[in-house]
Every structure is written in structure tokens, then in C-alpha cells.
């Protein structure tokens, strides 16, 4: 472990008053940032500085700060969730940066994710896709069959879990040059397609979710694979292929 030290950095941050105003990149200087701090703690430090100067702090989305809620976003130096891989922005640490660095911080850019303020975007398009079919239609009575009555091959369960590990952060859309949401939708479709409980509604599910995805204004998948690289949970492209299969199957039925 390298011992923590303090660095001075320059920040170029997208500032935008609200959804309808025009934004621009603003420059800030921030000194004495501990390399043991997380990236968001660095932004806290900046905001503390701004508040003390009676200036408006930078709005950014964040919540759990342990890489699971999917609330944090940020396009840092040209990459979704910053330069490290397999993590969210809240898990990015300042030890990835050097003294004197200039760091670009921008919001997710997508027609389907309009900016609300500064670095905060509206990702409710994902919710609407989920509402279109991302579920098993079972009542919550608890009077279902015993959990062990349908054995599920471990391999399928593991694959379903790996697809279900998606945190819905939107990095896939942000990083895709086409602004496509196929990795997100593919992961959801895959999770259910792999489990016996989800197979019953598979046809309707994939058609409905894809229809909603298209309506939201996401771009098309051209298989660049950037989403898989930038996904903090390492969701595999295989999920997109599986969705494509499911979609073709459903379309010819």
C-alpha cells in the first residue's frame, strides 16, 4: 500500500442550473486532497469550500457510497465512473490521480437521461423499461410452491445472478457511443430467461421491454463492447446476445 499523501488538482466540471438552461464547463482548483479519499469525498471537499465561499455547491447523485445502489454516475476524464475498472465512482479513490492533474467531470450524456442540474441526470427511463416487463407476474401472497420444489442448475442460477448484479447506474448508456441501453435491458431479460420461474412470460417480456427501450430514445447496439468494459459490475455482452436470441425467438413466434 502506498501511504496516503495530499495532492492539488484542477477540476473542470459541467455546471447547469436546471434542465432548461444551457450549461458549461467551469474550472475549479482544489488543494490538499488526500489520496486516501474517495472521489466523492473529494467532491464533498470542493462543495465545503464552495459553501464556505458562499457559492453554489456542485449537485451530483450519490447515496450508498459502497458501489451497490447505482445512484452515483459521473463521466470522469472521458470514462464512465472514471479511470479504474470494475467500480462505481464512489469506489474510485484519489490515489488514481496525481498532483497537478486536471480532471474533467461531466454528467451522463444521453437523450434518454436529461440533465436535471449540474451532474445530476434523470434515469427514470430505466424504471419505465422495468415496468414494461422486468418482473415475474406472481402475486405476493407467499403461497407459492416451496422454494426447493423446482431445482435450478447451479450454472443457470449463477449466470442469472451475474446478470441480476446490474445496479442500473447507466454507465453502459453513458459510455456507449450510440447511447444504447442494450446491456441494461439484456441483463434483465437474461436473468429471467435463465430461470424456470421467468420462462413462462419470456416472449412478452422481451418484446415489451425492447419496445419501451426504443420509445425512450436510446440508441442502437453496434456491439462495440465498451459497455461491458465500463460496467462496474462486469455484466457480460453475452446478456445482449441472449436478449437478441430471445427477441428473435419471440418475433417469429
Amino acid at each position: 500500500m502506498s501511504a496516503a499523501k495530499n495532492i492539488n488538482i484542477n477540476l473542470k466540471i459541467w455546471r447547469q442550473k436546471n434542465a432548461s438552461s444551457k450549461g458549461s464547463m467551469e474550472t475549479y482548483k482544489l488543494d490538499n486532497v488526500s489520496t486516501a479519499s474517495s472521489f466523492l469525498e473529494m467532491l464533498d471537499q470542493l462543495n465545503e469550500q464552495l459553501v464556505n465561499e458562499k457559492k453554489e455547491p456542485v449537485a451530483f447523485d450519490h447515496d450508498c457510497r459502497e458501489g451497490i445502489c447505482g445512484m452515483c454516475s459521473l463521466y470522469i476524464n472521458g470514462r464512465a465512473h472514471g479511470p479504474d475498472t470494475g467500480i462505481t465512482t464512489c469506489q474510485l479513490h484519489m490515489r488514481m490521480f496525481n498532483d497537478g492533474d486536471t480532471i474533467y467531470i461531466e454528467p451522463w450524456r444521453s437523450k434518454a437521461f436529461p440533465v436535471i442540474k449540474d451532474l445530476v441526470v434523470d434515469r427514470s427511463a430505466f424504471d419505465r423499461i422495468q415496468q414494461a416487463g422486468g418482473f415475474v407476474s406472481v402475486n405476493t401472497s407467499g403461497n407459492t410452491i416451496d422454494a426447493n420444489s423446482i431445482p435450478v442448475p447451479k450454472d443457470d442460477a449463477d449466470k442469472a445472478f451475474m446478470a441480476a448484479a446490474c445496479i442500473g447506474c447507466g454507465a453502459c448508456v453513458a459510455t456507449c457511443k450510440n447511447g444504447s441501453a442494450m446491456l441494461f435491458v439484456g441483463a434483465k431479460v437474461s436473468q429471467y430467461a435463465l430461470l424456470p420461474q421467468g420462462k413462462v412470460e419470456a416472449t412478452q417480456r422481451v418484446l415489451n421491454m425492447v419496445r419501451q427501450m426504443d420509445e425512450e430514445g436510446f440508441g442502437n447496439c453496434t456491439n462495440t463492447g465498451a459497455c461491458e468494459i465500463e460496467c462496474p459490475k462486469g455484466i457480460s455482452l453475452e446478456n445482449i446476445a441472449r436478449m437478441n436470441r430471445e427477441f428473435l425467438k419471440a418475433s417469429v413466434k
Binding site: N77, G78, A112
Partner: peptide, 9 residues
């Protein structure tokens, strides 16, 4: 069209 405003970096 899916990304009307591009990234600065």
C-alpha cells in the same frame, strides 16, 4: 440523436 450533447473529453 441518442446523444444530442457530446462529451467535452
Amino acid at each position: 440523436a441518442a446523444r444530442p450533447i457530446g462529451y467535452a473529453k
